Simulated scan of single mutants.
Amino acid sequence: MFDETKKSNIGYTIYKPTGVIHNYPHIDLLKQEVTCTVSYRGKIYMEVTINLKTNTIKVIGNVKELGDLSVDKESYIEMFKHQAKYFIENKISDPQI
């Protein structure tokens, strides 16, 4: 018998682009350094440079102005660290190709 008091777990989610762009304008395989940017409507809000050889991270700017359009600064840094490691390990110097 069907119990109509239970809520259904069935539904759907619509994914819609926010317009926030992540870019990797500089990848130096020898220095093991990757520069990543977060931009929106042509303006760069944050630039993160990750050097895997020296284990350093340099951050310029912030994404607070973007509000709900983006994730927080720490989440971007973690994502960029993983991407940098992937690019260097797989010798990818231009991920746009």
Rank of each mutant, 00 (worst) to 15 (best):
H26R: 10
Y24I: 02
P25C: 14
S70I: 06
I27S: 01
V48C: 13
T18S: 15
L30C: 04
I57G: 09
K64V: 15
I57A: 09
K73F: 06
P17N: 09
T56N: 05
Y12N: 06
Q96D: 02
Q83E: 03
T35I: 03
T37A: 09
S75A: 05
V59H: 07
I14L: 11
K16C: 09
L69S: 10
I50V: 11
T35P: 01
K43Q: 08
C36W: 08
E89Q: 06
M79W: 01
G42N: 14
K53D: 08
N90I: 02
I14A: 10
L69K: 15
I77K: 03
T13Y: 07
F87A: 01
I27G: 00
V63F: 12
K16S: 11
L52E: 00
K64C: 10
C36T: 11
K7D: 08
V71L: 05
N9T: 14
I14M: 14
I27F: 00
R41E: 14
H22F: 07
Y24D: 04
G11E: 07
D72M: 03
E65F: 11
D94V: 09
L69C: 11
T56R: 02
I77N: 02
N23P: 04
E78N: 15
K58M: 14
D28C: 08
D72H: 07
I44T: 08
K81P: 03
I44R: 04
I60N: 13
I14F: 13
Y76R: 02
E78D: 15
V38A: 05
I97D: 09
R41V: 12
N62F: 07
S8R: 15
L30Y: 12
G61N: 07
D68P: 04
I60Q: 12
C36Q: 05
K43F: 09
K91D: 06
K58E: 13
N90M: 03
L69Y: 13
L66A: 05
Y40D: 15
D3M: 10
L29N: 07
V71A: 10
K58Q: 13
T56V: 05
S8Y: 10
N9I: 14
N55G: 02
K6H: 12
E78A: 13
K7F: 11
I50C: 03
H22L: 12
V38K: 01
I44N: 08
K64R: 09
Q32Y: 11
K6A: 12
E47G: 03
I10R: 10
R41I: 13
I92D: 00
I88A: 06
I92C: 01
S39V: 01
T49N: 12
D28Q: 12
V34W: 04
G61A: 05
Y86K: 02
S8H: 13
L69Q: 11
L29Y: 02
I10F: 15
F80Y: 08
Y15R: 10
A84K: 00
L29R: 07
Y40S: 11
I44F: 05
I77M: 03
V34D: 03
Y86G: 00
G67F: 10
V63P: 06
T56A: 06
G61P: 04
I77H: 01
I50N: 01
V38H: 01
T37V: 13
N51G: 14
S93F: 04
I14Q: 12
D28R: 06
T49C: 12
V34N: 03
